[in-house]
Simulated assay, not measured.
Amino acid sequence: MDIEKNFFKTFLKNFDEISFRLKFWDGEEIKVGPDEPKFRIILKAPLKKKDLLTSTSLTFGEAYMNGDVEIEGDMFTVFNELLKCIDKFSTNFKSLNKIFGGSTSMKKQKEEVSSHYDIGNDFYKIWLDDTLCYSCAYFKNENESLYDAQMNKINHILKKLNLSEGLTLLDIGCGWGGLLIEAAKQYKVKGLGITLSEEQYKRFKERIKEENLEDFLDVKLMDYRELKKSGLSFDRIVSVGMLEHVGRPNYDLFFENVNAVLKQGGLFLLHYISGLKESEGDAWIKKYIFPGGVIPSFREIIEISADYNYHTLDAESLRLHYKETLLHWAKNFDDNIDEVRKMFDEKFIRMWRMYLYSCAASFNNGVIDLHQILFVKGVNNNLPMTREYMYK
């Protein structure tokens, strides 16, 4: 025990630029950092040296999920402070091959997507807003509701796509269909959504009927890899929060399939969580939240797009918007925790809270970013010369 405790005290020197209190399993309590402590961590059991050096985030995350770590203080503050020291976290990728060495096959990726998005529509309804948008919102001011910010996001994207009546629009990874529903209602476009989630497919089908949009919209259970042989063709393509599930070996394949169904001169808006540099990601997130998920860097997507003669018209970072979105989700989750407890056990609840708050802190610290990139396939000289139309 003393050996593990002494190692942990040494390990804590990696975090001495932030200030908190830490209580050990034997009752000893110490202060870490130079300033007034902002939170308190209680270790109810030792964290093994080997585990911490293999993956700091996975070891801490699992200990918190299992109740061996307790946190006293505001959850966002805790993770926001800890992630200031993320460069000091350990990750031994070779020892975590089961997490980082997964397949990117069609079958495997469907299983991975289903593991997250098919938890149940009733669960997502608890903490998402009425749009059922499970992606970064767009806050024009800090006082906006989550619903208004999600509608802002949808309208911001639709304006960027420069839509007009009769155009065709494909949404790759369409979720519950909120974006396509607004596109059809506002612009009378003909839209198709594709998803791998059975739950999202069923609900989107229902929403199309509820909105009387059967003449404008359809949704299919379909993998993006099926587009190339589909015979389909679109004036516009949008993909929101889906590229993260593709996997680094398949980015080129993704563009190949987009290119196969996008008309010459057509617009493609890609909205995705991005990294400053190429990374395999975080072990805890990959094991428990997004199996198989990989965050592309901005530069590698720009490089691949050029190979397909895609010109970049606009690129926008929504990093702080995603922080605000996640904090809204986390508050909704906490405010409705009794409803969540009817569905899931305490381990799941602790896991999901850690996911929402740690991701909010990750965006706040620039560990990850969110980019919207607007591409045009080839040259289209009929598009507006300025971006003013996006903000009218």
Score class of each variant (00 low, 15 high):
residue 1 M to V: 12
residue 3 I to S: 15
residue 6 N to P: 00
residue 6 N to V: 05
residue 8 F to Y: 13
residue 12 L to Y: 00
residue 12 L to E: 03
residue 13 K to H: 07
residue 20 F to E: 00
residue 21 R to K: 14
residue 22 L to H: 10
residue 23 K to W: 02
residue 25 W to S: 05
residue 26 D to S: 13
residue 27 G to A: 15
residue 29 E to I: 14
residue 30 I to S: 11
residue 33 G to F: 02
residue 33 G to I: 13
residue 35 D to H: 09
residue 36 E to I: 13
residue 37 P to V: 07
residue 42 I to Y: 14
residue 43 L to Y: 10
residue 50 K to S: 03
residue 55 S to Q: 06
residue 55 S to Y: 15
residue 56 T to E: 04
residue 59 T to W: 04
residue 62 E to G: 01
residue 64 Y to W: 12
residue 71 I to L: 15
residue 81 E to K: 03
residue 82 L to P: 03
residue 83 L to M: 11
residue 84 K to E: 11
residue 88 K to N: 14
residue 88 K to C: 01
residue 88 K to L: 03
residue 93 F to V: 15
residue 100 F to G: 11
residue 105 S to P: 04
residue 107 K to E: 15
residue 110 K to Y: 03
residue 115 S to Q: 05
residue 116 H to V: 06
residue 117 Y to M: 09
residue 118 D to M: 07
residue 130 D to E: 15
residue 131 T to M: 01
residue 134 Y to L: 01
residue 134 Y to W: 11
residue 135 S to I: 08
residue 139 F to R: 09
residue 140 K to I: 05
residue 142 E to A: 06
residue 144 E to W: 10
residue 147 Y to T: 10
residue 147 Y to P: 03
residue 150 Q to A: 13
residue 151 M to C: 08
residue 160 K to Y: 06
residue 161 L to N: 10
residue 164 S to D: 02
residue 164 S to Q: 14
residue 166 G to I: 02
residue 170 L to Q: 13
residue 170 L to F: 12
residue 171 D to Q: 05
residue 179 L to V: 04
residue 180 L to E: 08
residue 184 A to S: 13
residue 187 Y to W: 10
residue 188 K to L: 14
residue 188 K to P: 03
residue 191 G to A: 08
residue 192 L to W: 06
residue 194 I to L: 09
residue 194 I to T: 11
residue 195 T to Q: 08
residue 197 S to N: 13
residue 198 E to D: 06
residue 200 Q to R: 06
residue 202 K to T: 13
residue 203 R to W: 12
residue 210 E to N: 10
residue 212 N to I: 02
residue 217 L to D: 05
residue 222 M to D: 06
residue 223 D to I: 10
residue 223 D to S: 11
residue 227 L to E: 00
residue 228 K to L: 04
residue 228 K to N: 09
residue 229 K to M: 00
residue 236 R to K: 15
residue 240 V to Q: 10
residue 241 G to F: 04
residue 249 P to S: 13
residue 249 P to L: 08
residue 253 L to F: 07
residue 259 N to I: 01
residue 259 N to A: 04
residue 262 L to F: 14
residue 264 Q to W: 00
residue 271 H to I: 08
residue 275 G to F: 06
residue 277 K to A: 04
residue 278 E to P: 00
residue 279 S to A: 01
residue 279 S to Y: 05
residue 279 S to Q: 12
residue 281 G to N: 03
residue 283 A to W: 09
residue 283 A to G: 12
residue 283 A to D: 05
residue 285 I to K: 05
residue 285 I to T: 03
residue 286 K to Y: 02
residue 288 Y to V: 07
residue 289 I to H: 09
residue 292 G to I: 12
residue 293 G to V: 01
residue 299 R to Q: 05
residue 299 R to L: 00
residue 299 R to S: 13
residue 301 I to N: 01
residue 306 A to Y: 14
residue 307 D to Q: 14
residue 310 Y to F: 14
residue 312 T to K: 11
residue 316 E to C: 15
residue 319 R to D: 08
residue 320 L to H: 08
residue 326 L to H: 03
residue 326 L to G: 01
residue 326 L to P: 01
residue 333 F to M: 07
residue 334 D to M: 09
residue 336 N to Q: 13
residue 341 R to Q: 12
residue 342 K to A: 09
residue 348 F to A: 07
residue 348 F to K: 02
residue 350 R to H: 01
residue 350 R to D: 05
residue 350 R to G: 04
residue 357 Y to I: 02
residue 357 Y to V: 05
residue 360 A to L: 04
residue 362 S to D: 02
residue 362 S to F: 06
residue 363 F to Q: 07
residue 372 Q to G: 03
residue 374 L to T: 14
residue 380 N to Q: 00
residue 381 N to M: 06
residue 387 R to N: 14
residue 388 E to K: 08
